[in-house]
């Protein structure tokens, strides 16, 4: 299988402003040494909670943030973030749909013009605009009559379909979906998920699906990555990760999925990362002496399934 995207040891650190001239606060490590890849035609799910760095990765991939370090290969091309042409190359081929359809659509434009903007930006001949728009609109499940509406006249699901149409009106290779359904009602979410699955095979797309909803992730992705405060803690085929989670954090997430609502059996006072040793050290119920040394590397536990946890070091049974 060809890998459409490869990310290696990606780091995105943000400087934090301080008022003191002498003491420089340490940078915020939004993404810290994350590697993953996406095969052609595949959906990679990215799970994690607020602040885990999921959206930062999405923004790097469309050139909105510059990585601090790391290598990114897209469609066989090594991306240099200082090269304007490379950024344009990313944006031509990677589409993105944001969580909040309200703030990502210009309220003063009609739907037709919102979609048209994407064509103008891509330099598509003006004579082809109407034809392209007419082609994409039924595919994403929008009624042609809504083209003349303003975003405020549409329902939440329709707005998200407009975002989809805008992202896909110029053919893309990879679509990044950043919590695309978390602001929608369940029945509308189901409609949008069905549309996304259909579009993927019809248009030959690959997806990077970012969500904190494990039910949705499970239903949508071939492989998944779990992030915790900027670090990748577990990655592998979705079935393997959900059925046999190895990292204590993933286990916690999966357990919550199964018994939604029941209070956690482990009493955790602090839900905070540790900045020395393993990132999960302060929360982990299985913490050992090794965990205080360095953040664990990724250990392979099954085919393509790896875990950043000392418990999964060969010979140590992880449960």
């Amino acid at each position: 299988m060809t890998r459409i995207l490869e990310v290696e040891d990606l780091k995105v650190h943000f400087k934090v402003g301080g008022f003191s001239l002498l003491a420089k606060p340490p940078p915020v490590k939004a993404v810290d040494g994350v590697s993953f890849y996406i095969n052609e035609g595949e959906t990679l799910g990215l799970a994690g909670e607020t602040g885990s760095g999921k959206s930062t990765i999405a923004k790097v991939l469309v050139g909105l943030y510059k990585p601090t370090s790391g290598r990114i290969r897209f469609m066989g091309q090594e991306i240099e973030f200082d090269n304007r042409g490379h950024i344009t190359f990313l944006r031509r081929n990677i589409g993105i749909v944001f969580q909040d359809p309200v703030s990502s659509l210009n309220p003063r434009l009609r739907v037709r013009d919102i979609i048209r903007e994407a064509l103008v930006a891509a330099g598509v001949d003006r004579r082809e605009h109407d034809e392209k728009i007419a082609h994409i609109v039924p595919l994403v499940g929008l009624r042609p009559s809504s083209l003349d509406s303003y975003p405020r006249q549409l329902s939440g699901g329709e707005k998200q379909r407009v975002s989809l149409a805008r992202a896909l009106v110029v053919p893309k290779k990879l679509l990044i979906l950043d919590e695309p359904t978390s602001s929608l009602d369940v029945s509308v979410q189901a409609q949008v998920l069905n549309t996304l699955r259909k579009l993927k095979s019809e248009l030959g797309l690959s997806y990077l699906f970012i969500t904190h909803d494990l039910n949705v992730l499970k239903y949508m992705s071939n492989r998944m990555c779990v992030m915790f405060y900027g670090k990748l803690v577990e990655s592998g085929p979705t079935k393997s990760v959900i059925n046999h989670p190895k990292h204590p954090y993933t286990q916690e997430l999966v357990a919550n999925l199964l018994r939604k609502g029941e209070s956690s059996s482990v009493v955790i006072r602090e839900h905070q990362p540790s900045f020395e040793g393993c990132i999960y050290k302060r929360i982990c119920p299985y913490v050992m002496s090794e965990c205080s040394q360095t953040h664990p590397p990724l250990y392979q536990v099954a085919e393509e399934h790896s875990v950043a946890c000392y418990l999964s070091k060969a010979g140590v049974p992880a449960h």
Binding site: H212, E262, S264
Partner: peptide, 10 residues
């Protein structure tokens, strides 16, 4: 987040 949700419900 899912985790905080389950704590809240508890």
């Amino acid at each position: 987040d899912a985790y905080v949700q389950s704590r809240l419900l508890g």
